[in-house]
Design a binder for these strands. Structure first.
Lengths: 341, 341
DNA sequence: TTGTAAGCGTTATCAA
DNA sequence: TTGATAACGCTTACAA
């Protein structure tokens, strides 16, 4: 059936230890032995059994990506890059979607115990994991778009994030500078967890406050449902619009919600940006090709994914951790304009 | 460190064989032994090492999903469902993106040899795998959106597809019935492979022919590039539009390309559907929320993914294969209208 | 430079 | 109903 190391040893007339050495480049081997082994490998189409290898080594080359909602295009872009980078480095990527009901750390710990993982990347979810969480993990952990509690030792994890509150504040400020004062806010938060959306809401509030604009909960109505996405943005926006005829702008804390919101605006017979300015968050391609193209707080998805993998490799290799904070960049496409009322 | 079966045996005062039996429900064990083992398992937070298990069993519970372009929202929807279903059944999903330069079967065979896979799902790519391909694989294989060459024994694989040519023909026919005769076609084909897009193009040609409309290559200009997606649709449409002022409709063989095409139409100062009718393919949410919402040949993504997993489980369990062909359903949202010139 | 042999943590056979 | 014990395929001392 399938060729094993013994078959290779037999065919090439050497011991299995030599085969192993040649294949792994560990220890010395004569030129002749090398050639004979490689020939046999080719002839029998031999591929080492990774279960045996991992068992012996007590490690594997599989990295688990735990994503909260792999359905979000922004995440998907990052998943795409992460898969590529991991593949390029000879590792495999296992993907698990964490439903809103599950705690990703619990899932992570369960999977980590399994012993066939060499690292875990957690994408999305909530802020504030504790020291204990990482210690229980026992394998390298990189957080993307979120980070750990401040109390956690920096040597326990790596993270790649943006400053959600700051970037959100800047975006709202830019709307205020355009003259908007009645600015809707669409975000989404499961329960009362501290998520990126939570911080973005804080940024929104902060911008208002610093510009002496009263915070009006009626402009940020959020249904506490377990969804985000196009439909969510659409529904919420419909809702806010109906009750706030005087609003002139809206910021959605994810582009998918911004697109849904834009649809709501347009289907209410209003124009973008003449009647309502729409600003999204993430900078996904869908917003660029939307009609009209939507302004967005652009996150460097590609770079974030790349750095996450880099950080993972660093941790696997030398154990070095890093906490990276990247900048966003507001992408102007014309869906936000000066208020004209 | 990590608890092993020996630790459990020691703590519960039984032999390791008994522990294994209790944990796997194989063979008998006294009630008392069961309880003692389970207690120890809980106390030590024991999780079986899957590498050891897989090595011994010569199999695993990991299914590999090989996707051509995981970046397409239609695929992503299916990936989401597949992940969920696989997870629900206690299996793990490993994902590999196959770049346009790679042959998925080669990748599949390499991965299959590895021995830590119990099945492979191939999503996208090209039609026409040969008997030999599946035989080399040696593990269950399910094809989604594509199927094998007719010559291949049906017992060698399962597949879930739509009839690309027929569905495309029907869609084009519906445009013709609306009075359109100058219908553009945006598709994408790497090299000259037989892909779903290839068959959809055949369907387009067939519809024209059956309605005595001359096939005009100028209306289906395709750049032979390694991309599809929004940008591709946009560029191609710009191109076709410039050279065919008389065209009144366009069908794009993927919604992402349809959205790009719609953007091209709108940015050329034309209206949808008054000047140009736009029809997409796939039925993704992005097309629904687009402005205007786009008509599309809706593929039952959820169902396809579900059936693919079902088929995989059947193959793993009883070895039964199945070749499933699902129907599409043209989703009318108003982006196609009667020609009015 | 090489081969022998001892595990890695399981499962399964077999005798008790 | 049990518990030794022999694999599974690999890596790696250790000895030759």
């Amino acid at each position: 059936m399938k060729a094993t190391i013994k078959d290779i040893a037999k065919l090439s007339g050497v011991g299995i230890a030599t085969v192993s050495r040649v294949l792994n480049g560990s220890g010395a081997a004569s030129k002749e032995a090398k050639e004979r082994v490689m020939d046999a490998v080719r002839e029998l189409n031999y591929i080492p059994n990774s279960n045996a290898r991992n068992l012996k080594l007590g490690q594997s080359r599989t990295i688990l990506l735990l994503a909260k909602s792999i359905i979000n295009p922004f995440f998907q872009k990052m998943i795409y890059v992460i898969e590529r980078q991991i593949s390029l480095r000879g590792y495999s990527l296992e993907i698990k979607n964490v439903s809103h009901m599950d705690e990703e750390m619990i899932v992570a710990q369960r999977e980590a115990q399994n012993g066939n993982l060499c690292g875990i990347i957690i994408m999305g979810g909530r802020y504030g994991y504790k020291e204990e969480d990482f210690k229980r993990l026992r394998i390298p952990c990189v957080l993307v778009t979120i980070t750990a509690d401040e109390s956690v030792g920096k040597e326990l994890y790596s993270s790649v994030i943006i400053d959600d509150q700051k970037e959100s504040r800047k975006a709202v400020e830019s709307l205020i500078k355009m003259g908007h004062r009645r600015i809707g806010c669409i975000y989404n938060n499961y329960g009362s967890l501290v998520t990126p959306n939570y911080y973005r809401l804080q940024g929104y509030k902060q911008a208002l406050e610093e510009n002496d604009i009263r915070y009006d909960p009626g402009l940020v109505s959020t249904i506490n449902v377990m969804e985000s996405g196009y439909e969510f943005g659409f529904k919420i926006m419909k809702n806010i619009l109906e009750q706030n005829r005087d609003m002139s702008a809206v910021i959605a804390m994810a582009d998918v919600m911004a697109i849904g919101a834009a649809k709501a605006v347009l289907s209410s017979g209003l124009r973008i940006p003449e009647d309502i300015s729409v600003m999204g968050f993430d900078g996904i391609e869908e917003a660029e090709y939307y009609n009209p193209a939507l302004d967005s707080v652009g996150q460097p998805a590609q770079q974030m994914a790349q750095q996450a993998v880099d950080a993972m490799m660093e941790m696997i290799g030398s154990g070095t951790t890093s906490q990276i904070v990247l900048e966003t960049n507001i992408i102007r496409r014309g869906s936000c304009a000066k208020v004209n009322r």
